[in-house]
């Protein structure tokens, strides 16, 4: 009844789910794991502070990912980080402009920013225009972001989430208006452009860890510890498999194909 060729995958899936669930459960009960430093995220407050001093708004975008595909993880993390950034701008009484590409992300982002301003007791500072739906089209979205950055002379630009080729347009566009820029992306191929053009870059899964890191949310921190355990499982599999293969046994290669 089981699909051949997918049995080991099924076992891996269960290992992952059990590990993550176990650590989330422990974190909920108070055993919250501590996380290593993520330098780019520490720079967020500095960027917002500088932008406030200059009297300029902060630009934020949660990227072009959505909630229904494999980019969902990055988008959810980007929304978590938006909560943190909006709370900081609210505390500093600084303006924020959020550029949105996916229509389903739009109402969520608006709600997050509104709540943040309310939490900081400056609810009346919130304006609906702070969160703008621009376009689902990749470059229509990018051109709108460029337009916003140069028309409204932003002081800091924060780009987190799932990005594609528009990454460099936004990063270099923000540099051209003199904004301090911080970017993060969970996919590898856009990171070099962020590294080239931004002041701080958050690499790969660091983004997914970002929400947990900034909020200290036990569930997310627990989940990260669980994921670490699965990575360890992968490393052990690799080491044992490679040693066996070098010694002439292809047992593990066959096992993984089951």
């Amino acid at each position: 009844m089981l699909e051949t060729g997918r049995i080991f995958a099924m076992i891996s899936l269960l290992v992952c789910w059990v590990a993550v669930y176990y650590f989330i459960d422990r974190a909920r009960k108070g055993d919250v794991p501590t996380l290593r430093r993520i330098p780019g995220l520490d720079a967020l407050d500095e960027a917002i502070g500088r932008s406030t001093e200059m009297g300029k708004p902060v630009f934020y975008s949660p990227g072009r990912g959505n909630l229904t595909t494999s980019s969902a993880a990055a988008t959810i993390a980007a929304l978590d980080i938006l909560g943190h950034v909006a709370l900081s701008t609210a505390k500093y009484k600084c303006d924020i402009v959020v550029g949105i590409s996916d229509p389903a992300v739009y109402p969520l982002a608006e709600e997050i920013v509104r709540t943040s301003y309310r939490t900081a007791n400056v609810g009346d500072m919130f304006k609906p225009e702070m969160v703008r739906f621009l376009s689902p089209d990749q470059f229509a979205f990018a051109s709108s972001c460029l337009g916003i950055m140069s028309r409204e002379k932003v002081g800091a630009a924060v780009m987190m989430g799932f990005w594609q080729a528009e990454s460099l347009l936004l990063a270099e566009g923000s540099a051209q208006v003199g904004a301090i820029s911080i970017a993060g992306c969970d996919r590898l191929f856009q990171i070099p452009f962020f590294v080239a053009a931004c002041d701080y870059t958050i690499i790969g899964e660091e983004l997914l860890a970002g929400g947990a890191y900034l909020s200290g949310d036990p569930i997310q921190s627990g989940s990260l510890a669980g994921q670490d355990l699965v990575k360890l499982f992968a490393v052990v599999l690799l080491v044992v498999g490679v040693v066996a293969r070098t010694a002439g046994s292809d047992y593990f290669v066959k096992l993984l194909a089951k």
């Binding site: 501590t34 921190s221 510890a225």
Partner: peptide, 9 residues
Amino acid sequence: AYFFFSSKF
């Protein structure tokens, strides 16, 4: 290894 986040590991 670079993407291990929790100090536990």
